[in-house]
Write a protein that binds this DNA or RNA. Structure first.
Lengths: 190, 190
DNA sequence: GTGCACATGTAATGTGTTACATGATTAT
DNA sequence: ATAATCATGTAACACATTACATGTGCAC
């Protein structure tokens, strides 16, 4: 499979921000908001080797004297940056909003300094459109459920999902307004 | 591994509602709000065979005359129902709310008619407590981010996650009020 | 000098994904 | 009759998880 996995995407996104070792990346997954990624060595080190084999990342200065520990600090290569930008710039599809992986918001988060502001605005527009239409469909299903069942947990759980999505829709509208009006601010373009 | 997977849990939860064939279950995953589960035959049929091997589900009436198609309709066994109830009744941990899999809300949704109302209330209390403390932690991280970066996409994406969780917290409070006051309604107990 | 955090790695296992294969029934 | 849908299955592959293994440097 030539497809990049969600973990691999997270790794190159973090490496774009600054060169790091596998251990550093594990600690990020273990302690920050990216906790939903496993910090197990069995996933991260193999993923790093896959990325290295593809030429997207490279260990910098194999015989680094400044670092006595046997750390391997990786940096993003030019090809890696291209792959990152390509992944970030993917249009937001209905599948994306349904699966709601950590992946989607990570795509938006990694846009800083990597793509023009227009791409971020496009993301938000797509996101609003796809999520909006999906929520509308779910609301229809909710009405049907409410008709057949009373207030029981199935309906309530369903409602929880819908309300979470509505909060995200609301966020997207505000974020778009913020980014759109920021014509005076320094451009995001790399 | 003796652990039940998220897919297996979804399958026995659906089979508890009514006996169904693998194809029926696939269609549910393909067309309803449970779309985040794959409807690929390569995942569902092997999972059904695993559940059958464990004795949690059974094909009813192998030589059903009423159904000319060669469907295998599965029903939940007593052991299967026990496993379902055990999984549903698990306390909500911090890990659960962080991973936010489809799993957690499914647990709540499948409570109808399977566990006493107290279990549902307990779920909501745990959920509020764990998610509340996690959101608080994330809000601290957000403030740090906001200090170092301007309004850029990383901060915005972070905020989106927090707002989604806050919507769920709000939902949990309302759901708890609804379930708690419903002393007059027919009990959920099986 | 013993324990702990740092740092990387491998092997076994289970499972989801993709793609392909097969055959029955219904509709046209 | 022939296409589409129903219905189940398998094989190859990639990947995550878990558990184990190994070694370094620092603190007490």
């Amino acid at each position: 499979m030539n497809q990049i996995s969600s973990l691999e995407f997270a790794l190159i996104g973090l490496l774009q921000q600054r060169p790091q070792s596998g251990y550093d990346l594990r600690k990020t997954f273990a302690t920050t908001a990216m906790r939903h990624y496993s910090d197990s060595p069995g996933s991260i080190y193999p993923a790093l080797r896959r990325l290295e084999a593809r030429g997207w990342i490279a260990a910098q200065d194999p015989t680094q004297p400044a670092d006595s520990r046997r750390r391997r600090v990786f940096r993003l290569t030019t090809a890696g940056k291209e792959a990152l930008v390509a992944r970030i710039s993917l249009p937001v599809t209905r599948e994306d909003v349904i699966w709601q992986g950590p992946e989607l918001m990570l795509r938006f988060a990694f846009m800083d300094g990597n793509v023009p502001r227009a791409t971020a605005l496009r993301f938000l527009e797509d996101f609003e459109r796809e999520l909006g239409s999906y929520v509308e469909e779910l609301r229809g299903q909710l009405e049907q459920m409410r008709a057949s069942f009373p207030i029981h947990t199935g309906v309530l759980a369903f409602q929880s999902g819908i309300e979470g999505m509505e909060a995200q829709l609301d966020w997207a509208r505000r974020a778009r307004a913020l980014l759109g009006e920021a014509g005076a601010a320094p451009p995001m373009q790399c």
